[in-house]
Computed example of a mutant assay.
Amino acid sequence: MARSNRSRGRAARAREGHPDLDIDRLTAGWRRTEVHAGREWNVQPVSEAQAVKAYLCPGCGLEVAPGVAHLVAWRADGVLGDAADLAGRRHWHTHCWRLGAR
């Protein structure tokens, strides 16, 4: 008799459906706050799969190519508010951000 590789619990889970995902909760888990040169920065990693556009790294002046994992950083303590800080976010190579070329 042939053996099935399918889990017997899969059909039951499919009938129940998937719970709704809380995107804010998922993305907030990745974002962190760092302090550099007396300023607070929000730092969020971008995976290879999420990197679909090219950006210019402010640390080295070279392109962050599509498909390359990198970081997005923006001020967390700006005086103009969260919207202005978020609009001023920049995409950095991970190693450039770690070197501290801000």
Rank of each mutant, 00 (worst) to 15 (best):
Q50T: 10
V72N: 03
R10H: 11
W30K: 08
M1H: 10
D20K: 14
C57D: 09
C60Y: 12
H36L: 10
T94I: 08
I23P: 07
R75Q: 04
Y55N: 01
A73D: 06
R15Y: 07
A51I: 00
H70S: 15
D77R: 00
R98E: 11
G61P: 03
A11S: 06
G100V: 03
E16W: 04
D24L: 07
V35E: 13
W92G: 02
G29H: 11
R32D: 07
A76T: 00
M1W: 06
D82S: 11
R25D: 14
H95E: 15
A49I: 10
W92M: 04
R90K: 14
A14F: 00
Q50A: 15
R89S: 15
R8T: 09
V64Q: 01
R3F: 13
R98Q: 12
E40T: 06
A14N: 03
V43C: 06
V79H: 12
H70C: 15
A54N: 03
K53R: 15
W74K: 02
N42M: 08
E63H: 03
T94W: 05
R89Y: 07
G88W: 02
D82R: 13
L71K: 03
K53D: 08
H95N: 11
V46Y: 03
A54L: 06
H95L: 13
R39M: 05
E48S: 11
G67Y: 07
W74S: 08
A12I: 07
A69Y: 06
C96A: 15
L71F: 10
R102I: 13
